[in-house]
């Protein structure tokens, strides 16, 4: 009972209820077909498995974005970083880039993630050292990054023929899709890192007030740099999953407009967009909500452009709900009590 009480107060409560609600809605309109999971060739198949597999990119991005937003920043370059990582991985495997690796998939992955981390380090440098507003700092890479990816691939769509590369998106371990394991391992690691070390506290503190955190002896600059590096690396991971899914690198469309989804995941999870306290689990739930809404809307035959419209409106609605001014106006009693 106590656990239930604690769960109800946690940030993850509402997002998880909404997610289950959407699943229930889908189950009812599809008359139970939605939940059916079949076993074929030792793999699980079904809509639910699809949501987790297709949502894995977004879950990775949401984890990186949660950290960045908690630090009081934002990263709108994640889509371009995805394009860069896909471009690098495919070029290395094809041998167009760094031919002495002889198309080794392992080095391709390492280089792609390193490139993502480097992009993140650049963003972090601009934000924490040069003190540019995060929006403008990452806008630079958002626009230039796609250009860099185009220059890496010479403006072509590169296809690769490598079963071990395909495994990143299409592989199965114990019947479950491989990207899901990536998400789970990273999530567990991060949860441990933020809860068992002081990092989580430092991060939230620098997001709430970076001046006083600095005076309290927290190295705010380094924390900010670190979260952008991590966000870049996570975006690179998402880029690898995407590029492995289409079996190639398409710099124009890889991760296009996914920035909004990532920010929306964090916001739907109930994390404040102004920074401060955060919950990784809630962001993951947010990502799952978005993925399941997308799947549902596709299944209902609504054109994808409309989904973007709805998402844009959702972002505004959520930030309005989070706005203190609005809540003071609507609920004066509650505001007074606080």
């Amino acid at each position: 009972m106590e656990i239930l009480q604690k769960y109800r107060r946690a940030r993850i409560f509402w997002p998880s209820v909404i997610f289950l609600g959407i699943l229930l809605f889908n189950t009812i309109i599809s008359k139970g077909e939605f939940l059916s999971i079949t076993m074929m060739d030792g793999h699980f198949y079904g809509r639910l498995v699809d949501i987790f597999r297709n949502g894995s990119k977004l879950m990775l991005l949401a984890m990186g974005m949660t950290f960045v937003i908690a630090s009081g920043g934002i990263d709108i370059s994640v889509g371009s970083v995805m394009a860069i990582s896909g471009a690098i991985a495919c070029s290395v495997i094809r041998g167009n880039l760094f031919p002495f690796f002889q198309g080794s998939v392992f080095f391709a992955l390492v280089l792609a993630v390193a490139a993502g981390a480097l992009c993140g380090a650049w963003n972090g440098f601009l934000v924490s050292r040069v003190r540019i507003q995060p929006m403008v700092a990452t806008l630079i890479l958002m626009v230039a990054g796609r250009g860099i990816a185009q220059l890496i691939t010479n403006g072509k769509i590169i296809t690769v023929n490598s079963p071990s590369y395909y495994f990143i998106n299409g592989g199965y371990i114990l019947g479950l899709p491989f990207p899901l394991y990536l998400v789970i391992i990273l999530f567990a690691g991060l949860l441990f890192f933020t809860k068992k070390t002081a990092f989580g506290l430092f991060l939230a503190s620098s997001g709430i007030n970076d001046k006083s955190s600095r005076l309290a002896g927290i190295r705010v600059e380094n924390i900010k740099l670190l979260v952008y590096v991590f966000c870049g690396a996570a975006a690179a991971g998402a880029g690898l999953i995407e590029s492995s899914g289409i079996k190639g690198a398409d710099c124009n469309n890889a991760g296009l407009m996914i920035e909004l989804d990532a920010i929306l995941s964090v916001a739907i999870g109930g994390n404040l967009l102004t920074g401060g306290r955060f919950s990784l689990g809630a962001s993951i739930c947010g990502a799952l909500i978005i993925q399941s809404i997308t799947t549902t809307i596709y299944a209902m035959g609504v054109p994808p452009e409309v989904i973007q419209l709805v998402k844009a409106l959702l972002v505004i609605t959520i930030s309005l709900i989070q706005s203190e001014k609005l809540s003071i106006k609507l609920l004066p009693a509650k505001a007074a009590a606080q």
Partner: peptide
């Protein structure tokens, strides 16, 4: 929205960016 409800300009205009872009493709691809 930015001034009245004290929202961050980049969130509002980012949503505006996606909203208008989506509206374009709704009108004609």
């Amino acid at each position: 929205l930015i001034v009245k409800f004290d929202l961050q300009p980049f969130i509002v205009t980012l949503a505006g960016l996606f909203f208008m872009r989506a509206l374009c493709s709704v009108i004609s691809k």
